[in-house]
Design a protein around this nucleic acid. Structure first.
Lengths: 251, 251
DNA sequence: CGCAGATTTGAATGCAATCAACACTGGTGG
DNA sequence: CCACCAGTGTTGATTGCATTCAAATCTGCG
């Protein structure tokens, strides 16, 4: 299925696109020919800042990235998390000036593909272009679910929901071991994602542990009771629009 | 600029696409040839429901529409508002099953364009396809700003921010008279959009009036002090990605 | 060991939800 | 024309969830 001689960057992109839809051998060939330039980032290092006007898109090859906006009084809102295979700044193809920032959460490697090359790829292979469009639509779907989380769920449910999402998405890219993930997030970051203070995140997390829903020790999250956790968070993975196979792998 | 013989539906779409980028005469011709089937909706009438799998996309020709998700205990989150020219269900081109609902807020006319026809248009005119993609990216940008609103702003700022956004977007499609808009929203709907209870919306609105920032009488909102309102809401219209001309018209 | 970052705990405050009425509005039918 | 009614807006009182402030532990690491 995957050509063993393919560089890891290209393999990662191919795998991502295949999770979104069919990719023909010719299309795969065109992907393999994409110019990419990798760069590494340390934990917490910014990748792009609000207002930047990059000329390339960054494919996450390894690591964990988040989008966020800083506001006035030092507070910030995390907008999304990204795992290997994601291209969080794909939007810079069309929206020249970035309206938010992007930073590494853990040590991360990003492969940059020039806009020009992507544009040529899309022109030559409209179906690949459609897959990229599809990816931005899934992105939007996740934003909408987060809006529900932020606007209408209790602290308890918000955190349960986010843990469910991370669990499923990590599994879909093979980053789980059984029911556990190596969580890259501090409680402060969790709070910035779900719109709660660090202190309150801590208390709610203790509650979730007491209820036997999750375990959170050091960097390691594991779900003790997946049924209960999804119920507590009102979590329904449909909004992630995972392909049947990937969703299956996520079980 | 606009062909007077063009049906209003097609004219609306053309105007929308032109607000997103250049449209050549040939491309305009292809748009004029799109098959469209109009349908009218009464206030509060659903257009599409979560789980639907439509075979066409709906262009709003007249009226005002909102996206929302209902949750368990009768509460709901409004995800976005849409004005004439928008195609809120463009995503059904790629994501077969709708993950939220869509309903008319006021009396609305929607022109449906079969997926097939849009797909053919995109294949024949890649630049138009890019414009549609651009539109979904702007959509995503607005979602992100709403996430900030829901997650990190006070009730006061949230409501000010939403009023600012509605003001600018209404102006951009010519639906304002001076500093006033015919607001289609009840206070309950405003609350469902910004994640607050109806009662609290009412109190905050009174505060904004007392501060001389807005006037809200019956269906009519007007901004008394635009400077002050944008400041109260931390509003910066950049995230709307309006074209320079449109943004100018919004002044 | 010592330090910085992360987690945990406690106490006090405050913002917004909830509950419960009441007033206002426009539209309908008797 | 008026009475009625449903939907919307307004007010008051109370409750409660989450924030804030402050400080104490814990953890990994140089």
């Amino acid at each position: 299925m995957t050509d063993p001689t393919l560089p890891p960057e290209h393999a990662r992109l191919l795998r991502k696109l295949r999770s979104l839809g069919e990719v023909s051998p010719e299309e795969a060939g065109a992907i393999a020919a994409l110019p990419m330039r990798s760069r590494s980032y340390l934990p917490h290092q910014p990748i792009l800042l609000e207002g930047d006007r990059p000329e390339a898109c960054g494919l996450i090859v390894e690591g964990f990235v988040h989008r966020y906006k800083d506001l006035a009084q030092g507070s910030r809102q995390i907008l999304s998390f990204h795992v290997p295979g994601d291209i969080p700044d794909l939007l810079t193809m069309e929206l020249k000036s970035l309206d938010h920032s992007l930073a590494a959460v853990t040590a991360t490697r990003v492969a940059f593909i020039p806009h020009e090359a992507l544009r040529a790829l899309g022109a030559a292979h409209p179906r690949l272009w459609a897959l990229l469009w599809r990816d931005t639509l899934v992105d939007g779907s996740i934003f909408r679910e987060w809006m529900v989380n932020l606007g209408r769920r209790s602290a308890h449910a918000r955190i349960a929901h986010l843990i469910c999402e991370l669990m499923v998405r990590f599994r879909s890219v093979g980053l789980t071991e059984g029911h556990a993930v190596e969580s890259p997030l501090t409680q402060a970051e969790l709070g910035d994602a779900v719109g709660l203070s660090t202190v309150h995140v801590n208390r709610v997390l203790q509650e979730l542990r007491r209820e036997g829903l999750v375990e959170w020790r050091g960097r390691r999250i594991s779900t003790q009771d997946w049924e209960g956790l999804t119920q507590a968070g009102g979590f329904d993975p449909g909004y992630l629009h995972l392909s049947p196979e990937t969703a299956w792998a996520a079980q």
